[in-house]
Write a protein that binds this DNA or RNA. Structure first.
Length: 276
DNA sequence: CTCAGTGTTCAGTG
DNA sequence: TCACTGAACACTGA
């Protein structure tokens, strides 16, 4: 699920159900990997009885602001995410919905928060690469303090971006995936941005011309804002985006032949005819 | 059974 | 010390 647009959608959901409410019950899986060596009692002690004052995001990290520290911080890894109970359906149409999709709490629930008004927020994670941590100053402590600029909210100027890229010999795709460079860029967004900026993902970061850096910046801003606006609902992305064909087609929607290779440790799709 | 996967971290290397 | 690379992590689903 999670690239920055998905995480921002989770932020909006959490804001709606949690802000202004008090946590009246906490269920916590005994999973010292996802909880980063914490045990359930420590988690419960920090959260139970607290009021939620806000929800914050930086890059792909989220945290809840409570009326007392420490605060819970969430990272979704590859398969984590927030869930809320589905709206009370009119008629529960028999077996189909029961087995899949609508079970509550969801399979792989790691943390379940119940609020004073009866609302709930669950963090689940099948693959267990996500993390839940407690921090007294989330933005000031690792891992969030180690992030680079937020790719949605604080894009540097082209000039600054050129400076940041100057020392980078890794492929530009790998640089974009580096969260200490541009926080929030994930695999498909890196490919999308490079496709739209017409830059070969294998190019060393430092080899980009000023014009290319400007295009990169503009397309990063455009892809992020568009994807966030769409609420991470990919059906609403413009039809010509690489996104729609990058996993399973030989050509882009515009008819350009696609090539795939591992770059920066990830499967990368690009259109050599238009990306140099 | 095998393999890839929307992400990060760590060890080893230059 | 820094930057880079690739393996490891843990599990699902095709």
């Amino acid at each position: 699920m999670p690239e920055l647009p998905d995480v921002d959608a989770a932020r909006v959901i959490a804001r709606r159900v949690a802000v202004g409410r008090r946590i009246v019950a906490v269920e916590c899986a005994d999973d010292s990997i996802v909880f980063d060596r914490m045990r359930p009692p420590e988690v419960r002690r920090a959260l139970l009885g607290r009021r939620v004052l806000g929800v914050h995001r930086r890059g792909k990290h989220l945290w809840l602001e409570l009326d007392r520290r420490p605060w819970p911080c969430f990272h979704f890894g590859m398969t984590g995410g927030f869930h809320i109970p589905s709206a009370p359906g009119r008629k529960l149409r028999s077996s189909r919905l029961k087995s899949r999709g609508r079970e509550w709490p969801p399979r792989f629930t790691k943390l379940r928060l119940v609020f004073g008004d009866g609302g709930e927020l669950v963090m689940s994670d099948a693959r267990r690469l996500g993390r839940i941590r407690l921090r007294h100053d989330p933005a000031g402590e690792p891992p969030i303090s180690l992030l680079g600029f937020d790719s949605l909210l604080e894009l540097p100027s082209s000039r600054e971006l050129r400076r940041l890229l100057a020392g980078r010999s890794a492929p530009i795709k790998a640089v974009l995936l580096d969260q200490s460079f541009s926080a929030g860029v994930g695999n498909w967004i890196a490919d999308e941005v490079l496709y739209q900026a017409r830059i070969d993902p294998r190019r060393p970061g430092r080899s980009l011309s000023p014009a290319e850096v400007s295009r990169l910046r503009a397309r990063l801003k455009y892809v992020m804002t568009t994807a966030v606006k769409a609420g991470a609902e990919s059906r609403r992305f413009p039809p010509w985006w690489l996104f729609h064909t990058r996993w399973d087609q030989d050509v882009s929607a515009r008819g350009e032949k696609l090539r795939r290779a591992t770059i920066g440790g990830r499967t990368t799709a690009w259109a050599p005819a238009v990306q140099q």
